[in-house]
Design a protein around this nucleic acid. Structure first.
Length: 617
DNA sequence: GCCGTTTTCGGCCCGACTGTTTTCAGTCG
């Protein structure tokens, strides 16, 4: 229910903005919406308990009432009242880049605009120019924004945005006068989708102008949106996606194909840490840190952490020396916080944890080493891949090729888990073919040394929760990954029962991509995650984080719930081709967003411990 | 509408850029 509540609260906020009501009221609703979106529990479970609702940061008596009302009746009366005041097509206009509440309100009240069609009409007949602050240039920009919005403005999956950002970073590194380059924003935080790409460059003031110019002239830039010295924005072409998943509504033609907005900020080298922190966000996280700074008598901006005074001119323009600015570490330290990794910066309680960690550390050295999550998982911790396909079903590599690839990547274990018989399109194996395949896996062990090759299956969880092979067949295997592949639009109650049956079968080690969602494409199942997590914990079943950027399933909030419950997690690439191993970083980033300690992830264990666990000793 | 380590009332983050302006409003992140 979290998503539904958040969507309604944020709609209330936008309507309040539009109607010119107290903007802090709107901010409160918006903030509550974001908090609820990030919750690891389903808010429906506490909706009838006002005290529990109000214990959540950002939820007070009024918003608690609205949540309770929604849980009871399926609607929020305040939203109904607000919507009655505004024509239904007006709110959507705020999704057009460059159109904010003020402009939309003017278009509606003074220009008679009630939806996109009527907006286009007054642009076409020129009457829009009679409205205040609407000149020829504004209208030209508006037309371009409308075109863009109509092309589909779905956020770009992490795995498609990362290569574009890396291309820009590499190219900017070679520009004269550039001291440091990095990407920031939601990409650095590892969010599953990215709205735009933020590139940060450190350069001396004298170099800023030509650095910005070089950025706007990069190959692949289709259009320049903003051209300042400290800030520039362009639209850049996206390289064609992987063959296995194309991007919805975006064909792979690199010449004219889809584009993504890329923002560049140029800052002086001594401000690097402050700027990196600022542009990494999230916005909510930044606001919290600034509030904290003010309480400590300091003021934080993208140039540094400065002593607070009454002067209205920003401190960096007055030559004030910052308390900290060159690195993120020193800024966190000055704010008496442990270093918070980018993936955790979402204002989901990490600041409190970082404060406790810092306060708990006695020595100076201990304070520098303190972390909000002890042993947070890192890419290098992963030593095993437990979900991989070969040419026996729909993979591209033979058993031996797969094993050699895994060994080259430094893994001590690879599990061969081809599809089961019901996955017909994926050439799933009959029980008989599986027995031959297991023999082939055993034979491969003799040819490829230096890595444990496990015989397994990605067995379908059928619609009723039964498994696609019988018990005797599954017991031949070293590892069983059970995944839902069909009937992915089941209602939540049925889906919960289905997954619970698989978890409780006693035959499954890992629950593969538990919801079956595909980002931007298919919502997948919405089981009662609290029940799934509890059952997984009780039955010693690991929940998978499927690392493919199109899946990232479990997602961050689910992982957080699993981590809290003490449930085991597997991070796997669902390898079909050699390149798929590269997706591991996205899986690990997602795990870090869910605060997963390495210890709780079975892929980080020694071979001995992992294999012992699989044998259920 | 929410919140409290100088507050239960009076605050609520900060700067860059653009376009339409004669000094700034609106949007974005």
């Amino acid at each position: 229910m979290n998503e539904a509540v958040a969507e309604r609260l944020s709609r209330i906020a936008r309507l309040q903005d539009l109607l010119g009501e107290d903007k802090f009221k709107a901010i409160s609703h918006d903030r509550a919406a974001r908090v609820i979106e990030g919750l690891s529990i389903d808010i429906a479970t506490i909706a009838d308990d006002p005290a529990k609702l109000r214990a959540i940061e950002g939820i007070g008596p009024k918003i608690a009432d609205k949540i309770a009302e929604f849980a009871r009746t399926g609607k929020m009366s305040e939203l109904v009242e607000l919507e009655a005041k505004v024509p239904p097509g007006v709110l959507a206009l705020m999704n057009i880049p460059g159109l904010g509440p003020k402009t939309v309100a003017t278009l509606w009240k003074e220009g008679g605009v009630t939806d996109l069609a009527s907006l286009k009409r007054i642009i076409a007949d020129g009457t829009i120019l009679k409205l205040p602050r609407m000149g020829a240039k504004s209208v030209e920009k508006l037309k371009e924004s409308i075109d863009l919005a109509e092309q589909g403005s779905a956020r770009l999956p992490l795995g498609l945005a990362a290569p574009v950002a890396e291309r820009f970073v590499a190219a900017m590194t070679d520009v004269k006068g550039v001291k440091q380059v990095a990407f920031a924003g939601s990409l650095r935080r590892g969010r599953e989708t990215i709205g735009d790409i933020d590139i940060l460059v450190a350069a001396a003031d004298g170099d800023a102008a030509h650095v910005a110019e070089a950025f706007r002239a990069m190959p692949g830039v289709a259009q320049v949106l903003v051209a300042g010295e400290k800030k520039s924005s362009v639209r850049a072409r996206i390289a064609p996606g992987s063959a296995r998943f194309s991007v919805e509504g975006r064909s792979g033609d690199a010449e004219v194909g889809p584009t993504v907005q890329v923002d560049l900020r140029v800052v002086p080298p001594q401000s690097w840490g402050a700027a990196l922190m600022y542009f990494t966000g999230s916005k909510e996280f930044n606001i919290r840190l600034r509030e904290r700074s003010l309480k400590m008598g300091l003021t934080l901006n993208e140039y540094g952490l400065f002593p607070e005074d009454d002067d209205k001119t920003p401190p960096q323009q007055r030559g004030i020396k910052p308390v900290a600015s060159e690195t993120e570490e020193e800024i966190f330290h000055a704010l008496r916080l442990a270093y918070i990794p980018p993936e955790m910066r979402e204002d989901r309680g990490e600041i409190d944890r970082a404060e406790q960690a810092s306060a708990g550390a006695k020595s100076k050295a201990a304070k520098h080493a303190a972390a909000p999550v002890e042993g947070l998982i890192e890419l290098a911790d992963i030593k095993a891949e437990l979900h991989a396909h070969t040419t026996a079903s729909d993979g591209r590599m033979s058993i031996e090729e797969l094993a050699r690839n895994a060994r080259e990547r430094g893994f001590h274990t690879i599990a061969v888990t081809d599809h089961s018989k019901s996955s017909v399109i994926a050439n799933g194996l009959s029980a008989e073919r599986l027995r031959d395949h297991v023999a082939a896996i055993h034979a491969a062990r003799k040819k490829v040394k230096g890595i444990h090759i496990l015989a397994g299956s990605e067995v379908d969880i059928l619609a009723d929760g039964s498994l696609d092979y019988d018990q005797a067949t599954l017991e031949l295997l070293d590892v069983v990954v059970a995944s839902p592949h069909n009937a992915l639009s089941q209602d939540p109650a049925t889906a919960t029962k289905r997954l619970l049956r698989a978890i409780e079968s006693g035959l499954v080690h890992i629950l593969g991509h538990p919801t079956g969602r595909l980002i931007n494409r298919r919502a997948g199942l919405s089981p009662d995650m609290a029940k799934i997590v509890d059952a997984a914990k009780a039955n010693d079943v690991a929940l998978e984080i499927n690392a493919h950027w199109m899946r990232l399933d479990l997602r961050d909030t689910h992982i957080r719930a699993a981590v809290d419950a003490g449930c085991l997690i597997a991070i796997d690439c669902d390898v079909h081709a050699a390149d798929d191993f590269d997706n591991l970083r996205f899986g690990v980033q997602t795990a870090r967003r869910g605060w997963l300690p390495a210890e709780q992830c079975i892929n980080t264990w020694s071979a001995q411990r992992l294999i012992g666990w699989l044998k259920r000793d």
